[in-house]
Design a protein around this nucleic acid. Structure first.
Length: 382
RNA sequence: GGUGGGGUGGCCGAGUGGUUAAUGGCAACAGACUGUAAAUCUGUCGUGCACCGCACUACGUAGGUUCAAAUCCUACCCCCACCA
């Protein structure tokens, strides 16, 4: 069995040592995560609309939060005084934090990028905040996340060749500073943290391999694949993922940032990805979309007006056990917050059920067959 | 009975002679969303069709003035307020 350790952490590959898909266990100071797994996104320290207990019952094993947003408020000083996010936010399972690298892209109009750092102008009050590899590590230390990511530069899909190259090179240079800062700044709350590198390179396979190979020399505990699902066609996304997972060390856990749809997860798993995070199940829930084993349901659509079926007859979640599509539609149009809450709860439950089944399928060496039966694309569930 | 105000597309509500099939908002219908500036945003929304265009019907009702009217005039109907 392949296993790698770091203070407070262990990643055990239970299946897929020399091939994909992989089935594993990621031991963290806040519990063991069965991989492949999905991390729901709680940008400001909380998954929107969902209480920690409910998040727990969706089957979520961890939560991803965000450095930039928590820097703006409450700020790292307050976080330190409050004892870190685990203590402050009530979520006791593992926490993963994005470094703020995504905001380099998503908030491109609010930042200035230099060789040294990113200067953000707050989208909330216009105040200025510097995010450098050192600052990002310091803030993630203050948050107390189990897994923290290196500050990277995430290029936009439309980025020019030159911008792409710069983002790639800066990400590699910053990796060194990220590691140094991680070594210099101690963890704060008596539990260990682990630093993962972020691989960029857009859909350029050579660039991806180069980034992965260079970063691998740093012997980081885990790796994240960034800069995908930002608008590029899927035919380009999947090879980019493969280029990275093939190049990185087998023993290291690999996270695919910001992906994706249920089908993307199945594809990612097949390519050797161990974990995912994405806003899709939560954001789309608020926008009236449910993911189901038979396709998506746009609950606003008229055809669900008198539909007494549950969202997904095969789903075991509390929503599918208790209320119908028509009632959800009614709640949605009545602008009841519970509509979005039910849908968020269902979507997260659905994602986690899918991954639980995927892990079982991997363990039973029948993942390809399993995945084939689960792919639904973006077809509508009627 | 008198005086004043008002009747606009499913609803509310702008518009007081000419780029008006008629601003907005709501409702309705459809779509987008992938490390969350998003419980947000976009499109359609009188009818018909050969539907990036054309035709028809529309601003209480009926007439009238005018090259041109939701907008001006007359009558009538209805609603609201106040006064008798």
């Amino acid at each position: 069995m392949i296993e790698q350790t770091a203070p407070g952490f262990k990643f055990k590959l239970l299946h897929g040592e020399h091939c994909t898909p992989r089935r594993g266990e990621l031991h963290t100071p806040h519990g063991i995560i069965e991989t492949p797994c999905f991390w729901p996104v709680g940008t400001v320290g909380s998954v929107k609309l969902i209480l920690p207990d409910d998040l727990n019952s969706t089957g979520a094993q961890g939560m991803l939060s965000n450095t930039y947003h928590l820097l703006l408020r409450p700020g790292d000083e307050a976080l330190t005084q409050l004892g870190g996010l685990h203590r402050w936010g009530g979520w006791k399972k593992p926490i993963l934090t994005d470094s703020g690298g995504f905001q380099v892209m998503s908030l491109a109009t609010h930042r200035k990028l230099s060789e040294e750092c990113v200067l953000f102008q707050s989208h909330i009050d216009g105040s200025k905040h510097i995010l450098s590899p050192e600052r990002s590590i310091a803030i993630q230390r203050a948050i107390g996340a189990d897994i923290i990511f290196m500050l990277d530069v995430c290029p936009a899909f439309e980025a020019s060749e030159k911008e792409l190259r710069e983002a790639h090179e800066r990400t590699l240079l910053w990796a060194i500073r990220n590691r140094r800062a991680f070594a210099e700044f101690p963890s704060r709350y008596g539990h260990d943290q682990t630093l993962w590198a972020v691989v960029q390179g857009a859909t350029d396979l050579a660039l991806r391999r180069e980034a992965a190979a260079t970063l691998a020399e740093g012997n980081d505990f885990g790796y994240a694949i960034g800069g995908l699902a930002v608008g590029e066609p899927k035919e380009l996304m999947y090879p980019a993922i493969a280029a990275v997972t093939e190049t990185l060390p087998i023993a290291a856990p690999k996270h695919l940032l910001g992906v994706g749809t249920p089908d993307d997860l199945l594809s990612g798993i097949a390519l050797g990805v161990d974990s995912f995070d994405c806003v899709l199940p939560t954001r789309n829930a608020r926008h009236g979309i449910a993911f189901t084993s038979r396709g998506i349901i746009r609950i606003k659509n008229e055809r669900y007006k008198l539909d007494q079926e549950p969202l997904d007859p095969d789903c075991k979640c509390a929503c599918c056990r208790q209320i119908s599509r028509s009632f959800l539609r009614h709640l949605y149009f009545a602008s009841e917050a519970t509509a979005a809450r039910w849908l968020t709860y269902h979507n997260l439950s659905y994602y986690n059920q899918l991954l639980t089944e995927a892990r079982d399928a991997i363990a039973a060496s029948r993942f390809p067959e399993f995945a084939a039966t689960k792919r639904v694309g973006w077809t509508e569930n009627i």
